[in-house]
């Protein structure tokens, strides 16, 4: 082989190598970025921090204030004289705030039983894929309620602690796909004063879910099953069907439910309406968020 040929071959090899290297700059970038891949946390399992009556695994983001008005009209089966329930209403006005992206607190006042309530919700686990796979989002909720309504029997010795109620919930949710999410809610409610010989600790389990019918509208359902032996007399399990509509900074939730109360002990354990008998409230929740702290500024 002549030296010229060797030189030529060398040059050819050199240049072809570099051409190969340049060909796949995008592939190179992909390889580089896959090295520092981070877990991809699932977002927007539900549209709102409330599924319908109860809590969802969603939180308001850190530094965000959420002003909520929840409203339930009277029973639909109350007849034309009551304009099928529209003449009556109970309301809860609440303020929620995100201390961080995983921890939120909230307070509220309900007209029903003149309740004051406060709660805190913390995300223990976040569903994620990618470099870390977690199948579920798990949140813990604790709430405290004070009924300021006058005692049924003012003649006997009453303690203000008798009007305290507590609820503890674990929320286990999974977003199965873009449009389908489910949630399980094991719940324990403690009431300081129970009627008759009824238990003070009440266990129940809730199930709920949503199906998105468009990018901004979803259909939700929620049901709480009171475990046998932990159900007060003349109460029914809470049933609710709803629609979430999202418009910019607002979320509107419209629902049909047999529950009058909007705090856990009142809607889970003290629902007196029979959904299947037409004791149904039409209602809505309106949520408006205000950003108090810009998340990009430390």
């Amino acid at each position: 082989m002549s030296t010229d040929k060797v030189v030529g071959l060398l040059f050819f090899l050199c240049t072809s190598f570099t051409v190969l290297a340049q060909d796949d700059l995008m592939k190179m970038l992909d390889e580089e970025t896959s090295k520092d891949a981070k877990p991809d946390y699932t977002t927007a399992t539900f549209k709102s921090t409330r599924l319908i009556n109860g809590q969802s695994v969603e939180n308001v983001a850190g530094g965000v204030l959420d002003f909520r008005i929840s409203h339930r009209f009277g029973y639909i089966n109350s007849g034309a004289y009551e304009l099928w329930g529209l003449d009556n209403a109970t309301t809860r006005i609440g303020l929620d705030y995100g201390l961080s992206n995983r921890w939120m607190i909230g307070v509220g006042r309900s007209t029903y039983l003149k309740q004051y309530d406060g709660f805190t919700k913390f995300k223990l686990l976040r569903q994620s894929s990618g470099s870390k796979t977690i199948p579920l989002t798990v949140s813990a909720v604790a709430s405290m309620i004070y009924k300021s309504v006058h005692f049924d029997d003012p003649t006997r010795e009453n303690y203000y602690t008798s009007n305290m109620l507590y609820a503890f919930q674990l929320l286990l949710a999974r977003k199965f796909s873009e449009g389908v999410s489910f949630q399980l809610m094991p719940t324990m409610v403690h009431v300081n004063l129970a009627p008759g010989t009824s238990p003070n600790d009440l266990y129940s389990i809730g199930v709920g879910g949503r199906i998105k019918i468009s990018k901004r509208v979803s259909i939700n359902a929620e049901y709480y099953y009171q475990l046998p032996g932990f159900k007060w007399e003349n109460t029914f399990n809470s049933v609710a069907f709803g629609v979430d509509i999202e418009t910019g900074g607002h979320v509107f939730q419209l629902q049909f439910t047999n529950s009058t109360g909007m705090t856990e002990p009142t809607f889970i354990n003290q629902t007196t309406g029979d959904f299947w008998n037409g004791d149904i409230h039409f209602g809505f929740n309106i949520s408006r968020v205000f950003t108090i702290k810009d998340p990009r500024k430390k």
Partner: peptide, 22 residues
């Protein structure tokens, strides 16, 4: 070449970020 993870855009409001992605 450039590659941008869309979920890494940060907004002034958390809800904007959610809607941007969703």
């Amino acid at each position: 070449v450039y590659a941008v993870l869309v979920k890494s855009f940060r907004f002034e409001k958390a809800l904007m970020e959610e809607h941007f992605n969703e």
